[in-house]
Computed example of a mutant assay.
Amino acid sequence: MTEYGYWQDVPTRWKDNDHYGHVNNAVHYSVMDTVINTWLIERAGLELDGDGPIGLCVESHCVYKASVSFPEVIAVGLRVGHLGTSSVRYETGLYRSDRRTLVAEGTFTHVFVDRNTRRPVPIAEPMRGELEKLVNA
């Protein structure tokens, strides 16, 4: 198993299953987005209602490895694959709850921008320091 600096368990929901009896592929993106933003709010100081920068998703990617179904729990590992001046590429591993069976691998890239102008801004402290902790975790 690849190393991640942060883990979060995400329960699947009844509505996540599609007609084929497994979690629909779009749910994987929602899970990645939820884990990343939970981490940003709880650990890196992202303020949803503040006046500071916000992260806009400019690219996402997912490779599916195995199916998962309700009521399974998805264990999500998070690390930073690249940290730029105003952007960050997160790498995620979605596993069964045992953290051994890989369900999907994904990347998610944020560009941090001024909330009003939507122009890129440098990632400032304390967020940068927290992101650095996840680089090559």
Rank of each mutant, 00 (worst) to 15 (best):
G21L: 01
H22M: 09
H22S: 08
V23D: 12
V23T: 04
V23N: 06
N24I: 03
N24A: 10
N25C: 07
A26T: 15
A26M: 08
V27S: 01
H28C: 06
H28A: 08
H28L: 12
V31Q: 01
V31F: 05
V31A: 00
M32Q: 12
T34E: 07
T34L: 09
T34W: 00
V35P: 01
I36Y: 03
I36G: 12
I36Q: 09
N37S: 06
T38G: 02
T38L: 02
W39V: 13
W39F: 10
L40T: 05
I41D: 06
I41G: 00
R43M: 11
R43D: 11
R43W: 02
A44F: 04
L46H: 13
E47H: 09
L48E: 14
L48K: 13
D49T: 11
G50W: 09
D51E: 14
G52Y: 06
G52C: 10
P53M: 12
G55N: 11
C57R: 03
E59M: 07
S60N: 15
H61P: 10
H61V: 03
C62F: 00
V63P: 02
Y64W: 02
K65R: 08
A66I: 07
S67Y: 03
S69R: 15
S69N: 06
F70C: 09
P71S: 07
P71Y: 10
E72R: 08
V73N: 11
I74D: 07
I74F: 03
A75D: 01
V76T: 13
G77R: 10
L78R: 04
G81N: 06
G81Y: 02
H82F: 02
H82P: 08
L83F: 08
G84C: 09
G84N: 03
T85G: 14
T85L: 02
R89G: 05
R89E: 15
Y90F: 15
E91K: 10
E91Q: 15
T92L: 13
T92P: 00
T92E: 04
G93T: 11
G93W: 00
G93F: 00
L94N: 02
Y95P: 00
S97H: 05
S97A: 10
D98Q: 09
D98G: 05
D98W: 06
R100Y: 05
R100K: 15
R100L: 14
V103C: 11
A104M: 07
E105S: 07
G106R: 09
G106N: 15
G106E: 12
G106K: 13
F108P: 05
H110L: 11
V111A: 03
V111M: 05
F112A: 09
V113F: 08
V113D: 06
V113H: 02
D114E: 13
R115K: 15
N116T: 14
N116W: 04
N116H: 15
N116Q: 14
T117E: 05
R118S: 07
P120H: 09
P120D: 04
V121W: 02
P122V: 04
I123V: 08
A124W: 00
A124I: 14
A124Q: 11
A124K: 11
P126I: 07
P126W: 03
